[in-house]
Design a protein around this nucleic acid. Structure first.
Length: 561
RNA sequence: GCGCCCGUAGCUCAAUGGAUAGAGCACUCGCCUUCUAAGCGAGCGGUUGCAGGUUCGACCCCUGCCGGGCGCGCCA
């Protein structure tokens, strides 16, 4: 509809250019917007405001000329000029009929588009170190990342979900030492407890499992505990497999599935780290100082140079990171989005600098990043304190067990990822209209409920009558619903373009709200056959869009609540 | 000190550079017992942190402050 109106305006502008009202070199950027206020019609364009200067006239006068030059359209009932020179468009009944028809025909495809044209996008998210269970911050990453994937898919992209495991390096050593200490019966208060050891209770369980000789399986490896507390290497492998398995379970409970689990260790075993280092050296961006090898990241906007190879010979974490992203590039992804916690913000400049220094013709701003801020958990009006050091943990699985998958996903995805998030457990658990997830899902269930009632009354929905009778929908609430249903495809585009799943959540809340208002104000199952079928048809369209949108969030659309 | 993010109603949050900045909760006042619910409706509530700038038009873009969060390792 927006495009249609833009086309009408474009035709009008062409006419005005021909008759000399507008200069021949006019390059109009036609913008058509949804109106907020119903009295401003259904759509509005600011075109006269932007072109008034070029036309050497005032916006209102120009808008009158544009309106006069607009070609007739079945979809437009009338136009009005308002305010400083906005042109307001009122859509016709024919247009709403067309929209509802499209929704009923396209069903779960309504709102999807092929803008991505099958191009490859990779989204890397969660990427938690296998040193402990997933906490709520990972949960936010999982929810936002997975919704982004669903959004990109809805926009016609070929999506790969990827999880990067830091299974090499110092943190894994710490983990192994911590487990070993537990295997030997030490606790964190003991004098020979490892300096930066992990203190959580899960380490105890892990050690017990190792000493029992359990076999643990993760996505692509399995390992059996050797029961030997001195076998540090065995403990390391076992611990990583064990915790990866735990994380797999957490993610499964959250309904998040990855296509690729990429192991940091593979970058070493396959020589990709060494190859990247060699290229960086050959390209002349490195130097030795103080026994370490440095990368001149300041050549690419960093505020100081970074150590690549430590004096102990090991590489710092960002070297395999660079090798990893080169690998992503070579795998042919047009777009790569890294979803991660904002506390890792400083890696962005480093990774991009490293990629530039490789001189592999990788674009400067590549890859994309979506960062999420911290999550505060509230229960009973008080903050639930999470201390990693003390080992007190609110894990993602705890949260899912307590409030359910749907509410957890919704709450974690419904806020702008740039902002800190307040997770109110009591609200997420409540089964009332105060809870936005419940409220949206209930709108969906309510449509289903109307149809159950319809069957009880031995009546049937006649879609053909309904569509023909859509002109009977004259109430404010009904028209609002129709207009909002029409907005959905644009929401899908915008949310993906802005990398902002929360915009889907906001939209759904508004749509649900409009539906509840409609439901509360008018009976659907009225005597009048035409009106009844028209309302049922509208309700089906609403249910469809709610279901489509909830699917983008990974939240279920129940038929009965 | 430097970098990034945030600052909108009492609280939690919305708002493609557009018209009178919107919801929910809380509060106040009404209504109601229903196609699925103790629900529905209305009202109250704002100098969009402050000060400039760009623009026909700024919560949004730019600059400088103030306040909060995160990061500033040869940890990841």
């Amino acid at each position: 509809m927006k495009q249609h109106i833009a086309d009408l305006i474009n035709t009008a502008l062409t006419t005005l250019i021909e008759d000399g009202t507008l200069p021949a070199d006019t390059q109009p950027k036609i913008m058509v917007e949804n109106t907020r206020d119903k009295s401003h019609g259904d759509f509005a364009s600011n075109i006269a405001l932007t072109l008034a200067k070029a036309a050497r006239t005032n916006p209102r006068e120009l808008s009158q000329k544009i309106c006069a030059a607009l070609p007739a359209s079945d979809n437009v009932e009338k136009t009005e000029i308002a305010g400083p020179g906005f042109i307001n468009f009122f859509v016709s009944d024919a247009s709403t009929g067309n929209l509802i028809k499209v929704i009923l025909q396209e069903k779960h495809n309504y709102g999807r588009n092929s803008d991505g044209a099958g191009r490859k996008v990779q989204v890397e998210f969660v990427s938690a170190n296998p040193t402990g269970p997933l906490h709520i911050g990972h949960g936010r990453g999982a929810a936002v990342g997975d919704c982004l994937c669903r959004l990109m898919d809805a926009n016609g992209w070929d999506v790969t979900r990827e999880f990067y495991y830091n299974d090499a390096g110092q943190q894994i050593n710490n983990l192994a030492l911590s487990v070993q200490a537990r295997c030997k019966g030490l606790n964190p208060d003991h004098e020979s407890w490892p300096a930066d050891g992990y203190r959580g209770d899960y380490i105890v369980e892990l050690a017990e499992s190792f000493m029992r000789g359990d076999t643990v399986k993760s996505a692509d490896q399995s390992f059996t505990g050797t029961k030997d507390a001195d076998d540090l290497d065995g403990i390391r492998h076992f611990a990583v497999a064990y915790l990866r398995h735990e994380q797999d379970l957490d993610l499964k409970a959250f309904g998040v599935n990855f296509d690729v689990y990429f192991l940091e260790s593979s970058l070493y075993t396959e020589g990709k780290v060494e190859a990247a280092v060699k290229t960086l050296i050959d390209n002349g961006f490195t130097y030795e100082d103080g026994g370490a090898l440095w990368l001149r990241t300041t050549d690419f906007g960093d505020d100081k140079d970074r150590v690549m190879r430590k004096t102990d010979g090991g590489y710092t974490y960002f070297v395999p990171d660079v090798a990893y992203h080169l690998d992503k590039w070579q795998r042919g992804f047009d777009t790569v989005i890294n979803e991660q916690g904002a506390d890792h913000h400083s890696t962005i400049t480093r990774v991009r600098a490293g990629l530039q220094a490789l001189q592999a013709e990788i674009p400067k701003g590549w890859p994309d990043y979506v960062l999420h801020q911290m999550v505060t958990v509230m229960r009973g009006g008080e903050e639930v304190k999470i201390s990693k050091r003390a080992g007190s943990y609110l894990t993602l699985r705890d949260l899912i067990d307590e409030v359910g998958q749907d509410a957890t996903r919704y709450f974690l995805a419904a806020r702008k990822s740039d902002s800190h998030l307040n997770f109110d457990i009591d609200l997420a658990r409540s089964e009332s209209a105060d809870n936005p997830v419940y409220y949206i899902q209930y709108a969906h269930a309510r449509v289903c409920s109307i149809f159950r009632k319809l069957a009880e009354n031995d009546l049937q929905w006649d879609e053909t009558i309904g569509i023909d009778a859509l002109g009977h929908l004259e109430l404010e609430a009904e028209k609002r619903l129709v207009v909002n249903l029409g907005r959905y495809p644009e929401i899908v585009k915008r949310a993906a373009a802005n990398r902002a799943p929360n915009q889907v959540a906001n939209y759904l809340y508004e749509l649900a709200s409009d539906f509840h208002t409609f439901y509360n104000s008018e009976k659907t199952l009225v005597e009048d056959t035409d009106l009844r079928n028209a309302r049922l048809t509208l309700a089906v369209a609403v249910r469809q869009v709610l279901a489509n949108g909830l699917d983008l969030l990974g939240v279920s659309a129940p038929e009965l609540m």
